[in-house]
């Protein structure tokens, strides 16, 4: 198990990651490189990779518990059970064709949004240009208004309360648009 934090706030990552002793590597991906490589558009998400370095299950929402079940409509045990089975027996629930079908491929606007976000982070880290941070975060959001790693991920960077009005405005837009994001829907109780 390799945990990657899609997070530009290293202190916050350390605070979370050291709450409980954990043996897995916990990496910090402030530029969302892994999101770009693996088509990750929200967190928490998991990808399965087998012994031959092949992706055998694409990125999908996989809550660790049912804490937010009323919002996500995801029964977290479904993924846990599939994962246990794969680890123990090697049996996957998807074939290669389905893995490709359920991957979330990016469009150019998302790819450009990711670059604007990276520029904002680099400017923030060099600490010289607060207006540049704002400009590039805003541009990223214009380009990818429904991507959680951009919209929600930007909120703490922009000094916006991630559980405040802006967040609920975003959730409203996202719901209105039909909750776009991962396609697989593991454990979803509201869709078939």
């Amino acid at each position: 198990m390799i945990a990657v934090a899609l997070d530009a706030d290293e202190a916050a990552v350390r605070e979370w990651a050291t709450k409980e002793p954990m043996s897995m590597p916990i990496l910090i991906d402030k530029y969302h490189i892994v999101a770009d490589l693996y088509g990750i558009v929200n967190v928490p998400a998991a990808v399965w990779v087998d012994e031959n370095n092949k992706i055998v299950r694409p990125a999908d929402s996989v809550p660790g518990s049912d804490m937010f079940r009323s919002f996500t409509n995801v029964d977290s045990e479904v993924h846990h059970n599939l994962l246990r089975k794969w680890v123990r027996t090697g049996e996957r629930d998807l074939d290669d064709r389905q893995v490709r079908e359920f991957q979330v491929l990016p469009n150019q606007n998302l790819q450009l949004a990711r670059l604007h976000r990276r520029i904002a982070i680099a400017l923030r880290d060099s600490g010289t240009d607060a207006s540049g941070v704002t400009v590039h975060l805003a541009r990223a959001e214009e380009l990818a208004p429904l991507d959680w790693t951009i919209r929600r991920g930007n909120m703490p960077l922009a000094g916006v309360d991630p559980f405040g009005d802006e967040f609920f405005k975003f959730v409203g837009q996202w719901s209105q648009a039909g909750r776009p994001g991962f396609k697989l829907g593991t454990g979803r109780t509201d869709i078939k």
Partner: peptide, 26 residues
């Protein structure tokens, strides 16, 4: 990528076994 202790870690450091790549955030 760097881990929380600042060490550089590669995904391929763990190859030839099943890997669960877990993306999360604060």
């Amino acid at each position: 990528l760097p881990d929380i202790h600042g060490r550089q870690v590669s995904f391929s450091d763990y190859n030839r076994r099943k890997r669960l790549l877990l993306a999360w955030s604060s």
